[in-house]
């Protein structure tokens, strides 16, 4: 049940049957913080209904040197919203010759999403915002859903991935883990998703944010996982 549904159906409604876009719940977003880094992973499949339109989709955008945003949700909204945020973050950096901190960006994004929520056509976008504060060097991760609920968290997921991955991370995550251990945890999560998610999400794009910037991490998506 959508918490914001009001039972009336407006004339612009796009909801024709079940599929407006490949169920956003099936898109995977994962985030893990560690001692001096934040890892963000996103599934590579771009879906529409039951069809995979693209198997090398990148659902992340770089906001500035040390902040990365991953997004999932309704097809048109996601990229539009993410690039709007990206443009504003970059405009701020150019005007002020300083980058916004991850916490400042998270609250800016929340404000934009919250005002959109009460508009005629809200953005249907879920986000993970990961970064390392350029001044304190502290890593951070923000969980943000389409209702604009913002939560700072040590690790996070969106969609059905939440049900599989959060319990794994509850057990194995420690706040002071190294990047190598972070990648191991990500592998653990990816294996479980391959084992239990009923669709092929075409593997993960993994990016690591450190105080030196963002790098794409090599990630083995071809490993075969025996189903239980």
């Amino acid at each position: 049940m959508a918490p914001h549904s009001n039972g009336t159906s407006p004339h612009w409604s796009l909801k024709s049957g079940v599929h407006q876009q490949g169920c956003p719940e099936l898109q995977v977003l994962l985030g893990i913080t560690g001692k001096d880094f934040t890892l963000i992973a996103a599934s590579k499949a771009a879906m529409r209904g039951a069809t995979i339109l693209k198997a090398a989709d990148d659902k992340t955008r770089q906001l500035n040197k040390n902040t990365l945003m991953a997004f999932s949700g309704e097809a048109g909204d996601t990229v539009q919203f993410a690039e709007y945020i990206q443009a504003n973050a970059q405009l701020y950096s150019m005007r002020n010759e300083t980058d916004l901190s991850p916490s400042a960006l998270a609250n800016f994004v929340r404000g934009e999403l919250a005002s959109s929520l009460r508009s005629r056509k809200p953005y249907n976008v879920n986000l993970l915002l990961g970064g390392v504060d350029p001044i304190t060097d502290k890593p951070s991760l923000y969980w943000l859903d389409y209702l604009a609920s913002l939560a700072p968290v040590p690790y996070a997921a969106h969609g059905y991935a939440q049900y599989y991955c959060l319990s794994i991370l509850d057990k194995h995550h420690q706040p002071d883990i190294t990047l190598e251990r972070g990648m191991e945890l990500l592998n653990l999560c990816a294996d479980e998703l391959k084992r239990r998610l009923p669709i092929d999400f075409k593997g993960l794009v993994v990016k690591a944010v450190t105080k030196d910037g963002t790098v794409e991490m090599p990630f083995d998506n071809d490993r075969i996982v025996k189903s239980a």
């Binding site: 918490p3 929340r110 404000g111 919250a114 929520l117 209702l147 604009a148 609920s149 913002l150 939560a151």
Partner: peptide, 10 residues
């Protein structure tokens, strides 16, 4: 609703 908790407190 969490989003409104943040919106209203702000």
């Amino acid at each position: 609703l969490a989003t409104d908790v943040s919106t209203v407190s702000d």
